[in-house]
Amino acid sequence: VGDQVLEIVPSNEEQIKNLLQLEAQEHLQLDFWKSPTTPGETAHVRVPFVNVQAVKVFLESQGIAYSIMIED
């Protein structure tokens, strides 16, 4: 199991704000291929294997929908 690319769908401005804060966490080494800008629009982010669980827990705790787009 390696890195994953998640497709994330924020449903409101609050969730977009939370994702932008997540993007700013440099220690997570997230690679946003497509940043969140509009509710209902997908964002794509590559998550290093060591941080996959932490990111998924965060998304679930914020009620942000996501799916695994690419499993490496």
Score class of each variant (00 low, 15 high):
Y66Q: 00
D3H: 14
K17F: 09
A24E: 09
V5T: 08
S11Q: 10
G2E: 10
H44N: 05
G63W: 03
D3I: 10
N51W: 13
I8M: 05
V55K: 00
A65R: 11
T42A: 12
E41G: 05
Q25W: 11
Q29M: 10
R46P: 01
T37Q: 07
P36D: 03
L28N: 03
L30C: 05
Q15F: 01
V47T: 02
Q53E: 14
H44D: 01
E13L: 12
I8E: 00
E14N: 07
E13D: 11
Q4N: 05
Q21D: 13
L59Q: 00
E13A: 10
D3L: 08
R46L: 11
F32W: 15
S11T: 12
P36W: 03
L6W: 10
L59T: 00
K56E: 04
A54V: 12
G63D: 07
L6P: 01
G63Y: 04
L59E: 00
Y66C: 02
Q53K: 10
P36F: 04
I8N: 00
E41H: 05
S11R: 11
N51K: 07
L22P: 03
T38V: 13
V45A: 05
V1Y: 13
W33Y: 14
S61C: 09
S61W: 05
V55Y: 02
S11Y: 09
A65C: 09
S35Q: 14
E14H: 09
Q53D: 14
A65Q: 12
V45D: 00
V50P: 10
Y66D: 00
G40V: 02
Q4G: 04
V1M: 10
Q53W: 07
H27I: 08
F49L: 13
I68A: 05
V45F: 03
E60W: 03
V47L: 03
Q29K: 14
G2I: 10
V45C: 06
H44Y: 15
F32K: 02
P10V: 06
D31P: 02
L22F: 08
A54T: 10
S11I: 14
E60T: 06
I16R: 04
A24Q: 12
P39R: 03
E26V: 10
D3A: 13
E41S: 07
A43L: 15
A54I: 12
N51M: 08
Y66E: 00
E13M: 15
I68C: 05
I64N: 00
N51P: 01
V55N: 00
I68M: 06
T37N: 06
S35F: 13
T42P: 15
E71Q: 14
L30K: 01
A65P: 13
S61V: 07
V50E: 14
E7I: 13
V45N: 01
T38H: 07
K17W: 10
L20M: 11
P10H: 01
V9R: 12
S35E: 07
E14C: 07
I70P: 12
L59A: 00
Q62Y: 14
L59K: 00
V47A: 02
E13W: 15
P36Q: 02
F49P: 04
P48R: 05
Q29T: 06
W33V: 14
Q15M: 04
Q62N: 14
T38E: 09
H27T: 06
G2V: 09
V5F: 10
V57K: 10
K34G: 05
S67V: 08
Q62G: 05
Q25L: 11
P48A: 06
D3E: 09
E41Y: 06
E41I: 07
V47G: 01
P48E: 03
S61I: 06
D31E: 15
R46V: 06
D72P: 10
L28G: 04
K17Q: 13
G40S: 04
S67P: 01
E14L: 11
K34S: 07
Q4F: 14
V47Q: 00
F49Y: 11
I64E: 00
V5K: 04
W33L: 15
P39D: 02
